[in-house]
């Protein structure tokens, strides 16, 4: 895996229409993004189509990356995950559209945020481990399986009118642990 800084430079070049940089970016990141699509969709053919859509989007949206302030892998993963979840939901219910959420906006952090992201990565294992097992499971299911509150309520046998509070409690505990 290329360094995050390399990936950021590649995205910057792609924003200028550099096709070679696009090929490099694909080489460096396609396995991770295909992995995300495959994990969500659990179907190779669909994951391939999804990954194709993701890279086409990346080509067109690269110029917006520079102002959105996310670490480069987070930006790419967010696009891939949201695209995959959209496909998954379309499969279940017809078009619903999470697409807009792919446009994660600027938080304006500096380069120090990139360094933080790497240590976050290590801590996330510990912090997910600190959560009650059902909350950690629920967070994974929402993030990687696209499950909705309704589905969570059924699965974890929590009344629908409190499932939101139930999940939020887990999310806030995760945040608290990660920012500790």
């Amino acid at each position: 895996m290329a360094e995050l800084k390399d990936i950021e430079i590649m995205i910057g070049r792609v924003a200028l229409g550099d096709r070679r940089a696009f090929a490099d970016l694909y080489s460096a990141t396609s396995a991770k993004l295909f992995g995300v699509a495959l994990r969500v969709l659990k179907d190779r053919g669909e994951a391939e189509e999804c990954t194709q859509e993701v890279f086409i989007r990346v080509w067109h949206a690269a110029s917006r990356y520079q102002v959105n302030g996310l670490s480069p892998m987070t930006w790419l993963i967010t696009i891939a995950r949201n695209r995959a979840i959209d496909r998954l939901r379309m499969r279940k219910t017809g078009p619903a559209g999470l697409e807009e959420a792919a446009e994660i906006p600027s938080a304006g952090p500096g380069p120090e945020e990139l360094a933080l992201a790497a240590s976050d990565r290590e801590r996330i294992v510990a912090c997910m481990g600190e959560l009650p097992e059902d909350r950690a499971d629920a967070i994974r299911r929402v993030y990687l399986e696209g499950e909705t509150y309704k589905e969570l309520a059924l699965r974890f046998d929590v009344p629908l009118n409190t499932i939101r509070t139930w999940l939020r409690r887990g999310l806030l505990k995760l945040k608290e642990c990660l920012t500790r």
Partner: peptide
Amino acid sequence: VADWAERMGSLAMTEVASVDPPPQLY
């Protein structure tokens, strides 16, 4: 929102395995 995107991105980086796409995809 950006912080949450980073947290979830870290989760994917940590827990989702990389898989090589088929060679013809590019």
